[in-house]
Design a protein around this nucleic acid. Structure first.
Lengths: 125, 125
DNA sequence: TCAGGTACCCACCTGAAAGTAAGTAGGCCT
DNA sequence: AGGCCTACTTACTTTCAGGTGGGTACCTGA
């Protein structure tokens, strides 16, 4: 995979969507950016407990290539970079909502443990 | 992972749902079973071009453990096993619909290639 | 008689995803 | 003077999903 954009061929729409959200942290990044609107690199890192810098960067770059995430660089010292969702990122997040509901229901059903991620003002899904 | 049921801990609902659909062929299996209602092992294998027997079995077993798929064994010779979706499998499939639409839109947008899988009477999503 | 169908199980191998740990460059705080 | 902050990059290692190719037991049709 490296850094090149994933581009099929796909069996179906699910396949194409999964290709873009596949990655240990991508749906969480989407969720985090959705909740905060815009986040700096270090904020995201702190918001996703357990993510490594390498994986966070890699996922963000891929999501940028896939047109889900916008990356705004401020040429300052110390460096400042802000990430936010693009229109496509927002719509993908919306499309994930029903899946999130299903998953929440499953967690309740099987009584799985849930990692508490305190996202201020976030509505659990 | 092996064959044990995945059971978190999860960050959120998306996480829990992804855990269950993660796997190269799972969403296709869901789709296939949804279209045909009930399918035998060899029918599924032929319906998913490229899948190996090992992966198909492995995925079916995991989906059975996760309560998505029902496995009906007919003690005959030659052996006959029928797979179908459970209530949870059906609802998961429904929850995947909006994601499928998003993916289809993405395929159109980036002009990705689509592997033609001819599922008789199937509505592409 | 022997290939081909049924639904699997098993051991081994590979490639890609993810983890680990280090380095970079300039500024701020103590 | 030394450590921490920013946002990364690079190299090396580990892990594991998935692929490959074999075997099982029984029956059917050529």
């Amino acid at each position: 995979m490296a850094t090149s954009a994933r581009r099929g061929p796909y069996f179906c729409g699910i396949d194409a969507a999964m290709d873009v959200v596949a990655g240990k942290w991508k749906s969480l990044i989407l969720w985090e950016l959705h909740n905060y609107g815009t986040r700096r690199f270090a904020e995201l890192r702190r918001g996703l407990p357990g993510v490594s810098e390498k994986m966070l960067i890699q996922h963000l770059r891929e999501m940028e290539e896939d047109g889900l995430v916008h990356r705004e660089v401020y040429r300052e010292v110390p460096p400042k970079v802000e990430y936010s969702l693009t229109e496509h990122g927002v719509s993908l997040n919306a499309a994930l909502a029903s899946l999130g509901n299903w998953g929440t229901e499953r967690i309740r059903r099987i009584g799985a443990e849930k990692v508490p991620v305190d996202v201020a003002g976030a509505v659990p899904r």
